[in-house]
Computed example of a mutant assay.
Amino acid sequence: MNDNILQRARKTFQLEADALNNVRQLLNNDFQQAVLLIKDCAGRVVFSGIGKSALVAQKIVATFNSTGTPSIFMHAADALHGDLGMVQESDIVVVLSKSGFSPEIKALLPLVKNFGNKIIAIVGNTDSYLAQQADLVLNTTVDQEACPNNLAPTSSTTAQMVMGDALASCLMDLKGFKDNDFAKFHPGGTLGKKLYLSVSDVFLQNEKPKVLEHQSLKEVIVEITKKRLGVTAVVNEQNELLGIITDGDLRRMLEKNTDIEHTVAGDIMTKRPKTIEPRELAVSALDMMRKNSITQLAVTEGNVYLGIIHIHDLLKEGLI
């Protein structure tokens, strides 16, 4: 029984992968023209569909909006009962359908054409009514659904989804849409924080442990304990960073039977420690900690010591 389940799962993956490979071969000049048309659109891209195609259309709308192409969703059935009013003169209408003959689609298309809006079809039948009425046709024909009965939309909806992703990706390239632009549309959640949260947004809430290089071991221990970050910076009179001492450094020193009474900060500090500037992204601090197997970084500007950013800070912010 378990083998049959895995066989069906693998067959589903294979059928959908084959379908995507076939649809990729169908890309033509209409796709290029669709991308350019949307890029130069003065209005919005209105996506519409019925059934499963409507759900795919909503996902593509979300992708377009998050990547800098203003879009809205209009259900094909609801359009016939008032929602058609959302279509403005400068908008482009993209209609998704596997068959291209759905009654709601057939009723919608003449109305949109009367408005004078350009129509792009994402359709699985190039001989359909939708394909004939559209200005541009993006062919998502699949030979077989991944459904065991070849009925439920599976391969066909995957093809629609990827066609939408391909449009969005090409538009991002043409518009020069970068990670900073992406961050503007994703200010919430972990993804947004990774794109905009800086070191200065995090470390300033921490204490700033520091000692001078001639201070005693006792003073070092007190400073580390008091500031509760497991580390202290070692600085000179000009507040320039000379090194750091972690609680791990203290333990290793004690294992070596060092002359504790005469030990000072400069004797046990790690020179040239890993540092990061406050303007750097917090996720860059996390990457540096992971690569070097450490849990904190000294924050500096030039060589001036500003404070400590700890891995617990990044955990608290949800970056881990």
Rank of each mutant, 00 (worst) to 15 (best):
G192L: 14
R279S: 14
D247A: 03
E223I: 00
S155P: 04
N4Q: 10
S90E: 13
M288R: 03
V94D: 02
G192P: 01
V94I: 13
L191C: 13
A77Y: 01
A79F: 10
G230Y: 01
D91F: 08
A146R: 01
D40W: 05
Q58H: 08
L195H: 04
M269D: 00
F182G: 07
V23N: 02
D201L: 10
N22Q: 13
G318T: 13
M1V: 12
V235L: 09
M163T: 15
V112Q: 09
T263R: 04
S66C: 11
S99R: 01
Q7D: 03
N29T: 12
G100K: 02
I50L: 14
L217F: 03
A183G: 07
N206K: 11
R44I: 00
T157D: 07
H186I: 09
N114G: 08
D249Q: 07
Y196K: 15
A42S: 10
P153E: 07
L138K: 00
Q296A: 06
S102P: 13
G164E: 02
F203Q: 03
L195N: 05
L191M: 14
K194M: 15
V202T: 01
L111V: 10
P103W: 01
L96T: 00
N4F: 10
F64Y: 13
D30Y: 06
S102R: 06
D267W: 00
N117R: 10
S128G: 12
L286V: 02
D181S: 05
H75L: 08
C147L: 08
N257E: 11
R251F: 04
T258L: 09
E280M: 11
I311R: 02
V220T: 03
M163P: 00
L297G: 08
N239L: 04
L254I: 11
D91Q: 12
A183M: 11
M163A: 13
S284K: 09
F47Q: 01
V220K: 01
L108P: 02
L195I: 13
E16W: 02
R44E: 09
A19M: 06
S155K: 05
S293D: 05
S216R: 05
T69F: 03
S90K: 13
M161W: 02
V95D: 04
K118Y: 10
V304R: 15
Q33I: 14
V304M: 12
E255V: 15
V61I: 14
D30I: 03
A121M: 09
H214E: 11
K210A: 11
H312I: 05
I60Q: 00
L109M: 14
V199T: 04
K208D: 03
